[in-house]
Amino acid sequence: MEAKKIYEILSGRFGSAIQQFQENTLPPSIVVGHQAIVEVCDFLKKAEELEFLSLICLSAVDMQEKGKMAVVYHLGSMRQRHTIVLKVELDRGSPHVRTVGTVWPVAAWYEREAYDLLGVVFDGHPDLRRILMPEDWEGYPLRKDYVYPKRYHTWDV
């Protein structure tokens, strides 16, 4: 199914929670209000003709100049052979969004990574710990204003 069509279906159902359709990004993406993300994902997974059974990738982007933090969801459907990208934009000061682990269990791992590297907090996540960095590491290394520490434990980093 075309991305435009998917956008229309979602707008018809969720109204103003679907904020924007970005046609020129590759692949085309839909900006969703962060309160509605779990419902939208659940709908995309379960609706006939959509059947987005797999979450291909979940990542976060630091949009420092806009004061936002974005979370990007790449969804795919093997049966319907289509893909779509969802984005939510969060406040950079305290980026909170609900976990989609209830829709796709695999999201738990991606969300830990996004938390570890960019500090996005996924509310409702069962085990939100760091995954790549040591647990007592300070700061989120992929944030644009991150300052790399000089020392960690007993050695120079």
Binding site: L117, M133, P141, L142, Y148, T154
Partner: peptide, 11 residues
């Protein structure tokens, strides 16, 4: 790299 130790002779 944010995660890699730059040489094991540091430890």
């Amino acid at each position: 790299s944010y995660a890699v130790l730059k040489g094991v002779d540091r430890i």
